[in-house]
């Protein structure tokens, strides 16, 4: 018999093992859970703050027995999630969604374009590239509104040391920032001079992704090699509640990662 909605909506327990403060309003929750399937980079889970509500949050880290979710405080549920302490227990179900197509990037140059909290679902991609000895074929373009909004600051250095070409930018000049300023999409043409025949993964605000796709297209990159991860409001995570539909697409099931040329047709970009 087919699973009922009820059955699929029942969460398992997740114990908070550690909470890492990333920015004033952002934390990374390290949690112990035992899902039936091992999560893949690009997938997400539904995090349940008991009796408050549930939010779809992507994996920002995947290790043995431990998963990480980076959460920014924007509403009721994320206010609870960002104020958790080690030892706390929340509800968790997943993994859901289509992962980043890591195999498409294997053996090729990969340009990772991240904007703001959009860095979170791309972090496991960087980890995977380093683990698989492809750090030197990976360029990370990462932009945030201000220096203190850059996530994983300690790790950014480690990634660089591991061989990843890390290029950072913040939107506007700031007294504590001596690096580049401007939007992250402005870094793409330069990265394309270094990268050969690349694949690209993009995640950030929708307008940033739209612009980024345009830049790749203008530079002659085939959009079937460009992938984006889309945010939509979700209630169930598995294609039942209907919330995340765009045209014929269920973002939770057909995405959240999409090939840029396909997504473009659906969103009319």
């Amino acid at each position: 018999m087919m699973d009922s909605v009820t059955h699929k909506l029942t969460p398992i327990k997740a114990v908070i093992a550690d909470v890492i403060k990333e920015a004033e309003d952002t934390v990374t929750l390290v949690m112990r859970v035992s899902p039936q399937k091992v999560p893949e980079p690009g997938q997400f889970a539904m995090l349940y703050a008991p009796l408050v509500g549930e939010s779809a949050i992507s994996f920002s880290g995947i290790r043995d027995g431990v998963v990480e979710h980076t959460v920014r405080r924007v509403g009721k549920v994320t206010t609870v999630l960002t104020s958790l302490s080690p030892g706390d227990v929340i509800g968790w179900r997943g993994p859901y969604g289509k992962p980043w197509p890591m195999s498409e990037a294997k053996g090729r140059d990969l340009i990772v374009v991240a904007g703001g909290i959009g860095m979170a679902p791309l972090r496991p991609v960087i980890h995977r590239r380093i683990d698989e000895g492809e750090a030197e074929r990976t360029i990370l373009l990462y932009g945030a509104r201000s220096p203190d909004q850059l996530l994983y600051r300690k790790e950014l250095k480690e990634w660089q040391e591991a061989g990843v070409d890390v290029r950072l930018t913040i939107d506007k000049p700031h007294p504590s920032w001596s690096g580049r300023t401007g939007f992250v999409t402005e870094l793409i043409p330069e990265a394309l001079e270094t990268a050969k025949d690349p694949v690209a993964f993009i995640c950030g605000p929708e307008i940033m992704m739209k612009v980024a796709i345009g830049v790749f297209e203008k530079s002659g990159i085939d959009l079937s090699r460009v992938w984006v991860s889309l945010e939509r409001k979700m209630r169930c995570g598995f294609g039942s509640c209907g919330y995340c539909q765009i045209g014929p697409i269920f973002v939770c099931r057909h995405g959240p990662t999409f090939r840029a040329d396909e997504l473009r047709c659906v969103l009319g970009w």
Partner: peptide, 13 residues
Amino acid sequence: VLRVKGTRFEYVE
């Protein structure tokens, strides 16, 4: 669809 008691989550048939 779900009963919640503290951090106990009970499936509702």
